[in-house]
Design a protein around this nucleic acid. Structure first.
Lengths: 248, 248
DNA sequence: CCTCAAGAAATTATCTATAATTTTTTTTCC
DNA sequence: GGAAAAAAAATTATAGATAATTTCTTGAGG
């Protein structure tokens, strides 16, 4: 590390700051260093946001060219997207963006309810006032959000904050994947429009947690996550149909 | 398909049978045709059975040579194992068989409880007497099993049978992955020894389902899956320690 | 005898090239 | 003009080769 070690010849305080910055940079890159994972993250982002529509073909050479890479890391990225349920692959016939329907929206909502309730139950004993304060801030951010993207980010932060203290990595990873699926549905429903709302469930959950009532918090969370919103959407041919999406 | 089409020049009945056999063969191979998936399945089998121990390095060139392949499909197989939680990869430092401890055993047990209960609730309305009979047969097979492998297979069949009618593919896939993790723990605990047992829980679940009492069945299943067995195991240096593993 | 450093071997990550398959386009025949 | 067949183009899957990194081995110094 020749470029970085030059910063080490400085006063102690500066060294600490620079050292930490470098460490964080290393962490951010080390655990996700390979081309394959960077490609898979970018593609996942596009699928979730709706920039890549359901059923769209992902052609390895095109993706490779776009990223200035060969198709070997691209294929690895595809395998990862497949495992996350964001893409489907048919041998020798290529990879497509996974499609979804109301059945799957419901399925994801129910899985989230089951797993988030489990996570919250284990998180409760480890919850600190500091964490709850940050969760409250996330709720406020969600209420003040003016577009879907920022609302989703704040909402996800809220759930992550109160669940993370469960310290069950496998469970949290599964929940993350389900959140990604939820976000896909959400963005597809509220493509451009978004009406600000006050999330009473989040506040009720926080109140229950502050009052030491973990069971009640878990019960509200379970219902909250299964809340499925209906939005009328007008398609290209001018017909309107309802799109369903998880909102919690 | 030159070899197969030759079978088509036969009487109608024979054509049907041969045609179906060919179709099934195609199905079995088409949806899992690539070298990468075959390699990942074989490696998964070895990790689950314990033939590959936790922490063991998986070297892409060695695996490639063993399968008479190049390392490109091997790397794709690695990404899949990673997503299933059977392997962990550190960029530029290779892939290792995932290790596990009591914490993870508990985590998997609780996730299975949450998700299998959810699946059963949705399966109940679609359960037929025929399915329950097959589940009963699986239970009998488990009780009569003389080794861990066959017990695990029969046990897994029982769970699959009663949960499959929920018709929630994503949920079932998650449960499958958790079963694989459970089997790892199980095989590591009961490596060679196995004491036959009668599974009263399975019979109680079936009785409740036959009696139309879905809630009771779900409650028993939830407890059943979380049953963690303790086995004293002697390691290389002669010390004994307890190994915990899911049994349900 | 142990620790640390330099060199050698092995291993990973990537790219370029090639064979096989699928999809698209063009052509032919009715 | 439209359906079927043949040819062309695109695309996937795999192999072989190369650069960069890590791990192992060996040797020097304390």
């Amino acid at each position: 590390m020749p470029a970085e070690s030059s910063t080490l010849g400085q006063p102690t305080r500066a060294l600490d700051t620079a050292g930490r910055a470098f460490y964080q940079w290393r962490m951010a890159n080390i655990q996700d260093d390979t081309l394959a994972s960077r490609i898979s993250r970018v593609l996942a982002e596009r699928i979730i946001s709706g920039a890549l529509s359901p059923g769209a073909r992902l052609r390895q050479d095109h993706v490779a060219e776009e990223f200035g890479a060969s198709h070997v890391p691209v294929r690895e990225a595809f395998r990862r997207l497949e495992a996350q349920g964001l893409a489907v692959s048919e041998p020798r016939r290529g990879v497509r963006v996974a499609s979804f329907d109301l059945r799957e929206v419901r399925e994801v909502a129910e899985m989230r309810a089951a797993l988030e309730v489990l996570a919250l139950r284990h998180a409760v004993p480890n919850l600190t006032p500091a964490v709850l304060d940050r969760a409250e801030a996330a709720t406020a951010a969600a209420d003040g959000a003016s577009d879907v993207r920022s609302w989703e980010e704040a909402n996800r932060a809220f759930h992550r904050l109160i669940l993370e203290p469960c310290a069950m990595p496998r469970l949290l990873a599964s929940i993350d994947d389900l959140h990604a699926a939820s976000a896909r549905f959400l963005f597809s429903a509220w493509r451009s429009s978004w009406q600000p709302r006050t999330d009473h469930d989040h506040r009720a959950i926080l109140a229950a947690l502050r009052g030491g009532n973990g069971d009640e918090a878990a019960a509200i969370l379970g219902r909250h996550v299964q809340w499925i919103g209906r939005t009328p959407v007008r398609n290209e041919s001018g017909e309107t149909r309802e799109i369903f999406s998880i909102v919690g």
